[in-house]
């Protein structure tokens, strides 16, 4: 997700389109990315740390984006 303060032009365009469809009470639309994948290991804590590293180094550009990790056991 683009950090607050980084203008999200995609979000703005989506937001401007909503009133035309009858939804006039929506504001603050932000468009982000959603990645899903499977990762194997014994400890949820270790896996969370690994995925956070993956985000820091590659999956997100922390100059402009923030990220959130959500891990569920299969």
């Amino acid at each position: 997700m683009l950090k607050p303060g980084i203008s999200d032009v995609q979000g703005q365009v989506v937001e401007r389109s909503l009133p035309a469809l009858g939804w006039e009470n929506v504001s603050g639309v932000r468009v982000g990315k959603h990645l899903e994948f499977e990762v194997e290991g014994m400890s949820l804590d270790l896996l969370k740390a690994q995925v956070e590293q993956m985000c820091e180094r590659f999956l997100a550009n922390t100059v402009i984006e923030s990220y959130r990790v959500d891990i569920r056991e299969a």
Partner: peptide
């Protein structure tokens, strides 16, 4: 180099 490049303002 520092910074990042995002989508053009006019999309």
């Amino acid at each position: 180099v520092s910074g990042a490049l995002i989508k053009n303002e006019g999309l």
